[in-house]
């Protein structure tokens, strides 16, 4: 039999802890493939977050540390500043990055830390059971917005790449989506650009990946991909918001 498709070597044999249909697996694959193709695996330290991907180091086989909730960019800064030859990336959810860890994220970006952040936007707090996140859409029902997110009570969704693109520190700021094969191919390109920004020491790089959460959205995987396309992408559009010279 001819082998025509397999998991990247960097992904371990371990079964993931993710729900059926969760795009964390797709994101892990894109990261693993990119690290391999760019020959970065052995140099890499991934700073994992608190959230559904808290066990990420079981699935992507690089050196790894497990940060406190929201502190990944600070921890990555600490590593990178004393070990500039290491390739240091964080992997964070929208609660971790945009709520409790927004200060660490914005300042790492403003300082132009030579680290890369992969930011998973699934519109809620998956791990703790589907509470409102800073990215929850207006009207979206979560376990803590049982009547739907209302601006007067809960404010508005936060657009992290658009915010970070106003700073001078980031070298590459983009948003991609994981809802279709075309978008996934594009997401991988964006991830590789972000990695190259760090490899070339150009500055901070971040890619937001519009994801889904079938379990907490109470939808099938296919329905949740459709919702991402129809409802989320119009609010969180795909794009490259800041690309400085040298990023490719």
């Amino acid at each position: 039999m001819k082998l025509i498709y397999k998991a990247p070597d960097t992904m371990t044999e371990k079964d993931t802890t993710y729900c059926p249909g969760c795009p964390h697996g797709i994101a892990h694959r894109l990261i693993s493939e990119s690290l391999e193709e760019m020959n970065l695996v052995k140099k890499t330290v991934i700073v994992w977050p608190v959230g559904c991907s808290v066990f990420g180091y079981y699935f992507i086989g690089t050196d790894a540390v497990e940060a406190a909730h929201g502190r990944a960019c600070a921890m990555a800064t600490g590593i990178k500043r004393v070990h500039p030859e290491s390739f240091v990336m964080t992997y964070q959810g929208d609660g971790d990055l945009a709520s409790i860890g927004i200060a660490e994220t914005v300042h790492a970006a403003a300082r132009g830390e030579k680290i890369t952040t992969i930011f998973i936007n699934n519109g809620n707090y998956g791990m703790t059971g589907g509470q409102m996140a800073p990215t929850t859409l207006i009207g979206q029902v979560t376990t803590t917005t049982p009547y739907g997110r209302k601006p007067e009570a809960n404010g508005f969704p936060m657009h992290v790449p658009e915010m970070l693109a106003t700073l001078d520190g980031p070298a590459y700021v983009a948003r991609a989506a994981l809802d279709s094969p075309q978008h996934i191919i594009q997401a991988k390109k964006f991830i590789q650009k972000a990695f190259s920004a760090q490899a070339k020491r150009l500055g901070f790089s971040i890619v937001e990946l519009v994801s889904t959460c079938p379990t907490n959205w109470k939808m099938t995987p296919v329905e949740s991909m459709e919702r991402a396309r129809k409802e989320v992408l119009p609010v969180f559009p795909i794009g490259e918001f800041r690309v400085i010279k040298g990023v490719e």
Binding site: V65, R71, A74, M75, T77, G78, I79, A103, E104, H107
Partner: peptide
């Protein structure tokens, strides 16, 4: 030498460097 944005960030930077 790095001036962090807060003590919360500072100690997590220390934590990161300590891991190396």
């Amino acid at each position: 030498y790095l001036q962090a944005e807060s003590e919360v960030a500072a100690i997590n930077m220390v934590y990161g460097a300590a891991c190396t």
